[in-house]
Design a protein around this nucleic acid. Structure first.
Length: 100
DNA sequence: GCCATGGCTAGTA
DNA sequence: GCCATGGCTAGTA
């Protein structure tokens, strides 16, 4: 696994309970400001085997990008940690975005 | 080639 | 809706 991916994994592990981060911000923190899509790809391929808190990553608008049951699970997990959603189904980033 | 993005814009109402 | 983006690898047909 490459340095960029290792940094992305470490950053995702650091997201505390009850907070979320975005694909783009994680990519920027890992040193690739336009690498948001790689973050999504890494989550897709490695979140299970690496035990990452994948549910704490949302898109730039605070929305859940997964479809179907996975998306519903993600929202349920976040709500169980106390993350608040607005009426349009997006995480209230002004309150719950992780700012390290 | 793949992708769980992001940002901008055309085309409607 | 469209498409530039970029690190990684066949994952979740």
């Amino acid at each position: 696994m490459e340095d960029f991916s290792l940094r992305v994994c470490a950053i995702i592990r650091d997201i505390p309970q009850g907070r979320v981060c975005t694909y783009g911000r994680i990519a920027a923190m890992a040193g690739s400001s336009r690498g948001a899509r790689q973050v999504s790809r890494l989550l897709y391929s490695s979140s299970r085997k690496r035990g990452l808190p994948w549910h704490r990553v949302v898109n730039a608008a605070g929305g859940i990008s997964l479809g179907g049951e996975s998306g519903e699970l993600q929202r349920a997990l976040l709500e169980s940690e106390g993350v608040g959603f607005s009426k349009d189904g997006k995480v209230i980033l002004s309150s719950f975005l992780w700012n390290p």
